[in-house]
C-alpha cells in the first residue's frame, strides 16, 4: 500500500522490494560525508573546526532518525558545544587560524589515501557477506532519558562512577599540563610590570 511522507515522496510500506533509499537518509549522509571530507582537506584549521561542527550536527540528525533522541541532544551539547569550542579556543590561543601548514609532498598524500582506501575496501568487502538485513520497525521510547537513566543507574552504575573518576583524573592532568612552570611565570610577571 502506498502513502506519502512529509516530503511528498510516495513510498510503499511493504519493505524490501524497493531498494531506493529514503530521502532523509540520503541527504543527511551526503552532508555528513562532504563536511567530513572538508574537515580533512581544508588548509585552514578554523574551517576544519566549523566543518566538523556541521558533521556533528548531521550525525545528531542521524541519531534522531535512529530513535536515539537523548543521544542526539547529548552529542550536540558535548561535541558541538563543548569539545569543538575547546578546539576553537586553542586554535585562537595559539594563533593558528591562518593557513600555517606546509604543503605536503604528493607522495605522502598518495600513501595516506592508499592506506585509508585499503581499510575502506577491506571493511566493505567484509560487510558484503553479512547479507541484507532490513531495519525493523522502530521501537518507541528506548532512547528517551527515562529509559537511559534507569539503565545507567542500575546496570551501568559501576562504569558510570568509574567514568567520573576518569573525568577527574583527566581534569587534574589537563590542569597540571597547562600550568606554567616557575621560570616562565616570572617572565610573564616581568613583562606585565614592564608594560605597566
Amino acid at each position: 500500500m502506498y502513502r506519502k511522507d512529509k516530503f511528498g515522496i510516495i513510498k510503499t510500506s511493504k519493505m524490501s522490494e524497493i531498494s531506493s533509499l529514503p530521502l532523509q537518509f540520503l541527504i543527511l549522509s551526503f552532508i555528513t560525508i562532504l563536511s567530513a571530507l572538508y574537515v580533512v582537506t581544508s588548509k585552514n584549521p578554523v574551517h576544519s573546526v566549523l566543518a566538523l561542527i556541521l558533521t556533528f550536527f548531521s550525525i545528531s540528525a542521524h541519531y534522531i532518525l535512529l530513535n536515539a533522541q537523548f543521544l542526539a541532544i547529548v552529542n550536540l551539547m558535548v561535541y558541538a558545544g563543548a569539545i569543538m569550542v575547546l578546539f576553537l579556543f586553542v586554535l585562537m590561543l595559539l594563533n593558528l587560524s591562518k593557513e600555517s601548514e606546509p604543503i605536503k609532498s604528493n607522495l605522502w598524500g598518495i600513501a595516506a589515501s592508499i592506506a585509508a582506501g585499503m581499510v575502506l575496501i577491506t571493511l566493505t568487502a567484509a560487510f558484503q557477506k553479512s547479507g541484507i538485513a532490513v531495519m525493523p520497525a522502530p521501537s518507541e521510547g528506548i532512547g528517551l532519558v527515562k529509559n537511559l537513566g534507569r539503565v545507567l543507574m542500575t546496570e551501568y552504575l559501576v562504569p558510570f562512577e568509574l567514568s567520573g573518576i576518569l573525568f577527574i583524573s583527566a581534569m587534574v592532568g589537563a590542569v597540571l599540563l597547562g600550568k606554567r612552570d616557575k621560570n616562565s611565570e616570572e617572565l610573564v610577571d616581568l613583562n606585565n610590570n614592564n608594560n605597566a
Binding site: 511522507d5 512529509k6 513510498k11 510503499t12 510500506s13 511493504k14 519493505m15 524497493i18 531498494s19 531506493s20 533509499l21 529514503p22 532523509q24 537518509f25 532518525l65 530513535n67 541484507i132 538485513a133 532490513v134 531495519m135 525493523p136 520497525a137 522502530p138
Partner: peptide, 10 residues
C-alpha cells in the same frame, strides 16, 4: 518521520 526505516537496511 520514523517510517524511514521501511526502506533502510542496517
Amino acid at each position: 518521520m520514523l517510517n524511514v526505516f521501511h526502506n533502510l537496511e542496517i
